[in-house]
Design a protein around this nucleic acid. Sequence first.
DNA 1: TTGATATGTAGGAAATTTCCTACATATAGT
DNA 2: ACTATATGTAGGAAATTTCCTACATATCAA
Lengths: 133, 133
Amino acid sequence: MTTDHVFAALASPARRRLLRLLLDEGAQPAGRLAVRFDMSRPSVSEHLKVLKDAGLVAEARKGRERHYRLEAGPLMEISEWLTPYERFWRERLSALSSLLDEMDDLDPDDQRDARGPDGSDDLNGRNGEQPHV
Amino acid sequence: MTTDHVFAALASPARRRLLRLLLDEGAQPAGRLAVRFDMSRPSVSEHLKVLKDAGLVAEARKGRERHYRLEAGPLMEISEWLTPYERFWRERLSALSSLLDEMDDLDPDDQRDARGPDGSDDLNGRNGEQPHV
DNA sequence: TTGATATGTAGGAAATTTCCTACATATAGT
DNA sequence: ACTATATGTAGGAAATTTCCTACATATCAA
């Protein structure tokens, strides 16, 4: 149930789809989930096991069925991991949108070069020095 | 550069650490990144390639060095994928916090059972019917 | 030009993942 | 007790991933 497990579990499209099904349709027995997949039932069962080990689903025995339900908690770890990058992509987005705004202000047929005066790349996207260790 | 590639790229702890280094310290040549790892330089180079194929880093040749910089854009896809689950874990969290609030209101030595009257599980955590197909 | 530096790629071993076909187990129904 | 249903597990094949040691390529510095 570590962060590693969660990231690894999400690496599989089949497993992400399982989570989505549980989110959209609520808890379900393994078999009902399995028939949706173009894959053998035991394989789906193993994917469920990976999700369970990552803490992303929980099972409850109901008679001879086992109902799996979504356990979204561990996804918070992904969200938290993502947080520090958010600022970064927002900067890029706002840079892009202001660039588009500028272009709107010009004659639509008279744009040629939106780069800086020196034509350089600004590798860091912030035009400043970096630690470099 | 599909969503699949992005999720797969993040599945490796080494690659997540590479992204973090680029975020914290800015763009750097491959070699400077590699020495931080307990792994051969060519292996780190291959991880960088996986990240590049996922669109998570970009490279710029500077003389005999290649500087890699973070490209956070594709992480938005992860964030968007996560969105519908957010509501779900927030509900659980607020349920937990209100439970804790209730417990605060009681005599700290007189709590025994916080389950529903029927002792059932409420598998969906919302006490309601579900589509079930 | 020569030699050192910075990197990517080739080729392959080892580990892991993915998926399948039996097969074992447990529960429902008759 | 017997049979059908719902699932997990065992064992193994095939594909993928991870990592390493050469080795090839390009650039910088004398």
